[in-house]
Amino acid sequence: MLSALLGGVLIGLAASLFWFANHRTAGISGLVRDALHAGPGQLVSIAFLAGLVIAGLVAGFTGHASLELAKLPLARLAVGGVLVGFGTTISNGCTSGHGVCGISRGSVRSIVGTATFVAAGIVTVFVFGHVLKGTLQ
């Protein structure tokens, strides 16, 4: 719980640094989209995403990499990935963009978006984990 709070504080500091240094919102789904298209924000987006990958490399070398994802069935990974890419593009935000940055700014759209994806997530876990027993976790 304490490490979760500490991690959150680091995320908040990182989002603030990015906002003041680059005047950009640290929304990862948006940065992925911007990194794919030539434009004024492409280089900055690629640099931020490279920082995320380097963080993963550091975690791997220090034994903090989670390999839990590899235990999921491939079909679920694929379907989940498509839905995450599709949904965050259509709604223009994800856990970081809507959840952290948007709510911090007081954006009503982000509050609605976050409430929606958390609610959809709760229903999904309930259906797959409890109704269709054993398909999750």
């Binding site: 989940g80 990935g81 839905l83 995450v84 599709f86 949904g87 994800c94 856990t95 999904t124 999750l136």
Partner: peptide, 17 residues
Amino acid sequence: GAAAFGVGWALTGYCPG
């Protein structure tokens, strides 16, 4: 869009970050 994202997020435990 947020609903679709929420389903994919819950299926995998993963979001873009």
